[in-house]
Design a protein around this nucleic acid. Structure first.
Lengths: 241, 241
DNA sequence: TCAAAAGTGTTCCTTCTACACCCATGT
DNA sequence: ACATGGGTGTAGAAGGAACACTTTTGA
């Protein structure tokens, strides 16, 4: 936790990123297991330095965890209840790891900084799982993709933040044409349909779905994709610039 | 500006409220003229105390300015550019009011606190203009309703905040059925139509508009409203609980 | 009984949905 | 040739827009 020394973070504000990825008909979210005894799972969070736009801070956090710079990102909500403190969680963590900490930790600057009331700005990100190699931060024991339907209990109000992120994703997806960000640069309509069916947990009629997507007029048709399967090769598409 | 002494505000976070009202076919916004030489106009802002939910802080700010407690409120966006500082504005203000301040003000705690970088949480509120009597805060010279099409230049990025608020209002209005909050408890469909036509700057066919609103199924029909006009009395409606 | 505005019903047109049909591909 | 899945066209259903018609009110 020595990163506090070097940096010049704004007090009492954090960013929480809900990073969504898609793979094998499954919508997934990137969750860290913290590097302490006890099962502590968390979203990807971080802080904002004094000379950093909040959007830039969010991108930095994403870069640290995914290695990618140009990730699709959406600020969706601020979580600002007065009782939003890490105190309860940090105390539990210290208790579960009592061997590692001396008794005076609760008087330390770090402890006070961390257990203060925090306001969190929620972002959700959409990434192509194939393109990234999740990299744990210094406080993570591991960082892994979890099916959105089977995530572990998360610390603090991260469960709520996650649920709200998913809700906003569903609301935005047709308005902002952003589902394509879950796919590689080029993709077939079928792949888009799979994503929609996964996210909205319903089926779409193939032929109508095709029209709906193409009528959005945001895709550019490229060459055909020959997969070796014994059927007509589908066209590849990419997002129009 | 002595309020800083008493309170225990969170540093570097503020709330900015865009308060919309409706009157005489006009959408209006409540803007303060600050109590200093030079024409400084601003949205309704404030800070968050350490033990206060952000939504509660926004409500408190609204209560201070309008006297109303149960105002419709929507958090719509966070403004967090690194260069969001009041410094430029405060310096201009001090210059325009140099007689009132001694040379050392720029070393004062107040000056440092205020000119720091701030992250603002944007809320918009919808109120019935008839119900409130705008009350200026201690730094206001006056507080007045302005037609959204002719607001004065605002300080800092308040122009941008206002524009984004209006944009979000338009997006939300059908989704959240919130236009009714601009009206008294009971109202006629015609009054709702006037609001829609004002906000979206287009006309609606009366008969179809009536159906659209009633089919939302959020209104309860009450008795008729006899105005004395020589025409059929329209029904009054109120929002279903 | 007339003018003005509210409320209801009907027709027309656009859009969405379901499905039939044809096309390309590899075995 | 044929099984498989992609792409296009079309008829029917649903939803929205335009407008005619009826009702209510006060003069």
């Amino acid at each position: 936790m020595d990163f506090l020394k070097d940096s010049n973070y704004i007090n009492q504000i954090s960013i929480e990123c809900v990073i969504f990825g898609y793979e094998e008909q499954t919508l997934k979210v990137l969750i860290s297991k913290l590097n302490f005894s006890g099962d502590f799972y968390a979203l990807q969070g971080g802080f904002i330095t004094q000379d950093e736009d909040i959007d830039v801070a969010a991108k930095r956090i994403l870069l640290e965890r995914t290695g990618l710079n140009d990730i699709y990102l959406n600020q969706f909500e601020v979580f600002g209840k007065a009782n939003r403190k890490r105190k309860e969680f940090i105390d539990k963590l210290i208790e579960a790891n009592s061997a590692a900490y001396d008794k005076n930790i609760k008087n330390s600057d770090k402890y006070l900084w961390f257990t203060n009331r925090f306001i969190s700005i929620g972002y959700y990100a959409l990434v192509d799982i194939q393109k990234i190699h999740p990299k744990k931060s210094e406080i993570d024991a591991s960082i892994e993709w979890h099916n959105v339907h089977s995530i572990p209990d998360l610390i603090m109000d991260h469960d709520e933040i996650f649920k709200h992120a998913l809700h906003h994703l569903k609301e935005d997806i047709d308005k902002k044409f952003n589902a394509f960000n879950l796919l590689p640069e080029t993709f077939t309509i079928k792949e888009v349909q799979d994503i929609y069916e996964t996210i909205f947990e319903r089926e779409y009629v193939r032929t109508n779905f095709q029209k709906k997507i193409l009528e959005m007029n945001v895709l550019e048709r490229l060459e055909k994709k020959f997969t070796g399967a014994k059927n007509k090769a589908p066209y590849l598409y990419k997002i129009k610039i």
